[in-house]
Write a protein that binds this DNA or RNA. Structure first.
Length: 478
RNA sequence: GUCUCCAUCGUCUAGUUGGCCUAGGACACCGCCCUUUCACGGCGGCGACGCGGGUUCAAAUCCCGCUGGAGAUGCCA
């Protein structure tokens, strides 16, 4: 029996984009559980995907979590006894642990090419079979392995899963979960670029960082048996597994940016107070008891118990979030209101960015708010505006906007130059006249024809709000 | 397709050891009141145990099946 002060939990976001509301959701429950038991809350950055990791995103994660007051005890910025806390800085640790498994014959080198695996998968799929590695490299002779290594054939390391029997684990919220081992794939642990996969890095790090409770989202349930087998291969004790429900879109699918704003930055920009967000997130799948809907982080910690978690995936409904926020807003005193307007809404930083766009279009300062309201607003009102170009059908206009959303999503950096070149490239690819293309975008994102230069405006409005307005407009055109 | 998880009002949920549930609260919506307008606030209304079998004196609550939803099935996490 461990004493409660031994509790150690973590969140492990990957720095691949705007900090996600789902990250905050899981962070909240980890944080509250840690505080409840006087334990430690660890922040670990999972930057093992070289193709997707984005440098600025790590700082954004820090900022977002701090904004919500979900402060961590150990992490890349503040250190701790079990660092480093950035997976890209732990490569040698993973190497050592791979060697242990190789030595124990629990893992093996796989020299199969990506092409072969694609074909294998396609073949299995066409036959209605489960897709899974066929074990070709599982029993290579020492000589064959040596030959491949000699030639420098790229390879990955796979875990040798048991091929019969079952694997079970106990989830604190769901009880025992068992799967047949035939279902289990020989999970890749180390990619050919030498980086570990999530599954491997995660297990190694959780063990070395002495994580006692893995609190993560439901989407991980199906890979937990693999993790269990990994712990077993090392001879380590498993943590307690706790799989929280998944936040959902309106259509019940896993929450996603294509269907719902998911960026914490968006909600901050949209005027949601951090305590509103935390309170609302807590209401997703958990209840305070006694029908109490409003509570602080401190109050939540006081009464927290995983027993009060309900397992149905909650729909992230902005209407209720707004209502929670309204409640907190209306409680602000004069000082709080002034401070918030000054520090969060009409900030000095924003005014400085706005000045070159706004000033030359004004003859009196009284025009400031009227001219620039769309920089501060959320959704816009399109009444009285003719947005659809005369020469285009609604259907193709809609398709253009769908493509535009993808362009907005896929843009790596969000600034005047990158926006400009991306829009230009997109327009050229679909061969629309500039007028048919740019004016509707201007109208949709700013709500007016006489707004400042488009690229600059879009940068200031922000990626998330631009995406929101395009989607919002699309719903109005039915 | 296969595996796994889940299942109370449109939405978030209470219901935790079966009876006090003719299923409670909140959001949204509708109506009324307050009010020179709007908002806030107050009062009220609408509205759910997915279906079928068991077990039991008694089931939203336990068991089985079905159906439905979701996730996983990636050298993403």
């Amino acid at each position: 029996m461990t004493s409660s002060s031994d509790v150690r939990v973590r969140i492990a976001p990957s720095p691949t984009g705007d900090p996600h509301v789902g990250t905050a959701y899981i962070a909240l429950f980890n944080y509250v559980f840690a505080k409840k038991h006087q334990g430690k809350f660890v922040l670990r950055i999972e930057d093992t995907d070289q193709t997707r990791a984005k440098a600025s995103s790590e700082q954004d994660i820090f900022d977002s979590l701090k904004w919500l007051n979900l402060n961590w005890d150990e992490g890349p910025d503040c250190g701790g006894d079990f660092g480093p806390y950035r997976q890209s800085e732990r490569l040698s640790i993973y190497r050592e642990h791979i060697d242990i498994l190789l030595e124990k014959k629990k893992a093996y080198r796989c020299f199969c090419t990506a092409e072969r695996l694609d074909e294998l998968r396609a073949d299995q799929k066409s036959k209605g079979l489960q897709t899974k590695y066929d074990g070709k490299c599982r029993n290579l002779s020492e000589a064959e392995i040596a030959e491949h290594l000699e030639k420098g054939t790229p390879y990955v390391i796979r875990l040798a899963m048991p091929q019969e029997g079952t694997t079970s684990f106990n989830d604190l919220l769901r009880g025992d979960v068992t799967i047949n081992n035939e279902q289990m794939d020989d999970q890749i642990l180390l990619k050919s670029d030498g980086f570990p996969t999530y599954h491997f890095a995660n297990v190694v790090d959780d063990h070395l960082m002495k994580i006692t409770h893995v609190v993560r989202a439901e989407e991980w349930i199906s890979s937990t048996p693999k993790h269990v087998r990994l712990y077993e291969a090392f001879g380590w004790d498993e943590p307690t597994w706790i799989h929280m429900p998944l936040l959902r879109n309106k259509d019940k699918s896993k929450i996603s940016k294509r269907k719902n704003p998911v960026s914490l930055g968006y909600y901050k920009r949209a005027g949601i107070l951090p305590q509103s967000m935390v309170n609302f997130l807590a209401l997703m799948g958990w209840s305070f008891g006694d029908d109490q809907e409003f509570f602080s982080l401190e109050q939540m910690i006081e009464v927290f118990d995983f027993k009060n978690v309900s397992l149905g995936g909650p729909i992230f409904d902005q209407t209720k979030l707004t209502w929670v926020n309204q409640n907190y807003m209306h409680k602000m005193n004069d000082d709080e209101f002034v401070a918030h307007m000054r520090d969060e809404v009409i900030t000095e930083d924003f005014l400085r960015k706005l000045k070159p766009l706004a000033l030359e279009r004004m003859t009196r300062f009284e025009q400031f708010f009227d001219n620039n309201s769309f920089f501060f607003n959320g959704g816009l009102n399109y009444e009285g505006l003719t947005i659809l170009p005369k020469s285009r059908e609604p259907k193709e206009f809609r398709d253009m906007l769908k493509g535009l959303l993808v362009v907005v999503d896929d843009l790596y950096d969000w600034n005047t130059e990158s926006i400009g070149s991306a829009l230009k490239a997109y327009r050229e690819s679909i061969e629309w006249k500039p007028k048919d293309f740019f004016m509707p975008i201007r109208l949709i994102t700013t709500g007016r024809k006489d707004s400042p230069p488009l690229n600059e405006s879009l940068e200031l409005i922000g990626r998330e709000m631009v995406r929101y307005r395009i989607r919002d407009f699309m719903t109005t055109m039915k």
